[in-house]
Design a protein around this nucleic acid. Sequence first.
RNA 1: CGGGGUGUAGCGCAGUCCGGUUAGCGCAUCUGGUUUGGGACCAGAGGGUCCCAGGUUCGAAUCCUGGUACCCCGACCA
Length: 493
Amino acid sequence: MAKELKELTPRSVSYSQWYNDLVIKADLAENSAVRGCMVIKPYGYAIWEKMQRYLDDMFKETGHVNAYFPLFIPKSFLSKEADHVEGFAKECAVVTHYRLKNNPDGTGVVVDPEAKLEEELIVRPTSETIIWNTYKGWIQSWRDLPILCNQWANVVRWEMRTRMFLRTAEFLWQEGHTAHATEQEAIDEAVKMINVYGDFAENYMAVPVIKGIKSANERFAGALETFTIEAMMQDGKALQSGTSHFLGQNFAKAFDVTFMNKEGRPELVWATSWGVSTRLMGALIMTHSDDNGLVLPPKLAPIQVVIIPIHRNDEQLEKINERVAEITKELKKHGISVKYDNGDNKKPGWKFAEYELKGVPVRLVMGGRDLENNTVEVFRRDTLSKETVSQDGIADYVKDLLDKIQENIFKKAYDMRETTTKTVDTWEEFKEKIEEGGFILAHWDGTPETEEYIKEETKATIRCIPLDGDKTPGVCMVTGKPSLQRVLFARAY
RNA sequence: CGGGGUGUAGCGCAGUCCGGUUAGCGCAUCUGGUUUGGGACCAGAGGGUCCCAGGUUCGAAUCCUGGUACCCCGACCA
């Protein structure tokens, strides 16, 4: 009965309902008063902060630096690159005025028609244009290159329909924007960064991803090549989790950015951009969670270990407190983040359920029995199993267990993806298998028309042309024309 | 922009079809006590412009008209 409040909708009912429920009940985020926008709550933000920190370290290690560019982009900037503007025009928030005034009829404030901007400002949907306008002033000679900047920022894309973390009108992300002297260097950069993303997804988030190249239809507006990492969610839909674009000289042309090469001749600069967003939070949730709530990989869990006392009286609690303090100290020495919850306003059972819902990887329980026997009960979130172990060497034990959990949830997600990935050769089989969810590897003739046809018939899109794996040529399942390699299909978020 | 649904206590909901006591339930909150190895129990208390406006009526949460907000499904979407 008391369970009703926090009980999650079972995943069997509706995946999207379950997802929404989980995000709210695990205290990650909630919908805000502004349509399509989301409030990220402290617990959710703590996870994002950890992601940010690891990613930022990885960017620094690969030679990048952080900078910040304006939120507003003059409308004229956005229209300089034709494909780019076409890709974003339909979802831009536009600032037209700079002042309000009291409504003459006394009912609050109205936009002051006198304060109309000469040129409208676009709230950035992405920053290529403002950044390349800026880079123009930074680049004269080959000695100024490369520029390897990253920005942590918010962007706005006025989507008609939104879902927390997966698609919101405003979201947080990082966007790297680099400028290079040669085409090859820019391509190498784009590839390097998709590898950084892949590394982060798999080794920190424990989310297995497939790296590949986007088809022309799915390519970033203004890019020559888009690299992507694609993940598979538990409901059989794919999630694009990060992209890295080789932009060629498109933005250099649009913003007239040239440099003097070593031979003293002017040349257009080569560009890349790459980004991941709070959408990664969605990937994290939808990859690992179960009906008890969130399951967090130890590397990203704000609390890695929670300790809960079970006591009959204050005197016993005192003893437990003392013992736990020692254990906590030892765990912290091992770099493990610990929370000791000895509040007496909630019963142990309530706490168990609560920390499971929040995805805390390991729970230690100490009661009277453990005090006597020098033991502690260890519970792991990923398998929901518990065992009683000695307090001696507990920190080493827990550290090892956290590593095991990190590995195990990756393996679980990997196995799930592998068992739901199918290889098909005929169009009939494709239409049948796509209903089951998961990835499908099939041959495609490489034309946008065929891709469009497949999308219309099945709602499946080409997630990517995988970089690794089988490169055996074949024939397109729809048209029978030749195909260089199998490509990855799925229905996607 | 189309199709459907909802708006009642801090949260989640019942009541609306078929108008009629003092608008009810669970959770949360407060008080007191007993508890604590998987979401405790008992006793008591507080908390409401029933989304807004207008109409019908002796009487409206309930019926009618208009508005509004939110949610879901489509369309849209790196």
